[in-house]
Amino acid sequence: MIREISVETVADAVCELCIQANHFLSTDMRNALARAAEQESNPLASRILGQLEENLQIAAEESIPICQDTGMAVVFLKIGQDVHFFDGDLTEAVNEGVRRGYTEGFLRKSVVGDPLLRQNTGDNTPAVLHCSIVPGNQVEITVAPKGFGSENMSRIFMLKPADGTEGVKEAIVQTVAEAGPNACPPLVVGVGIGGTFEKAALLAKEALTRETGAPSALPHIRALETELLERINALQIGPAGLGGNATALAVHINTYATHIAGLPLAVNLCCHVNRHAGCVL
């Protein structure tokens, strides 16, 4: 049975999710930060984690964005194959939602229309939109505003099959070490292994939207996530990069089939303001 959904409903939802994600950090992220604060033994690191907690409170109570970099709006739509959109262009509706959310929500407009000419578009559009078609008649929307302090420190590697698991581990730890203080630790480390060049990057981005600290369903990947989190925290980069245990809150790894000749690896770092808000229409 085909379900009719107006694209205006999508625009309204995207608008609201942009504002929500930038003012209220999700419960899973808040819990992960609270756990990090409990386990921190470095006094300066504890002080910084305390400031981050206070920052979240002020943001929520006074409607001030958690971070001034309110990001480029990354929007995931999982569209049920029995849905029919009407009332206009779906992509334009998503951009309309971003435009309204960033204007009405007093969010920073951080997007330039051309990467070389660099004129600010003035309304934070366009969004980066990822659509997938799934069974059913619902639409699942996730808005994940992405700041560029951590985006700039993210890396992609086209490893060889001979590099294997060891090569993957080295590249991930190296990426975090090189990012150091720049990516605003404590981080969430999103990893994509497999697929093609662009698939690996998308897997890594999606991994950031997973409930923070929730393990992979695959036993060998779960073990890898645990080992990498320990190795990354042993780097002692710490909150704000000034030393301490809390370098990363979680490592999330998503995998996909790949080619006999390749081992693509993408590492998408996210700062402690790992924003994601979602709803189902």
């Binding site: 910084i48 400031q51 981050l52 206070e54 920052n55 979240l56 002020i58 943001a59 006074e62 001030i64 964005p65 958690i66 971070c67 001034q68 970099d69 700041g147 302090g149 203080p181 605003c184 909150p239 704000a240 990069g241 000034l242 700062c271 402690h272 303001v273």
Partner: peptide, 11 residues
């Protein structure tokens, strides 16, 4: 250095 990601507090 100011603490990155604490923009509400710093404001």
């Amino acid at each position: 250095a100011a603490v990155g990601g604490a923009g509400a507090l710093l404001s």
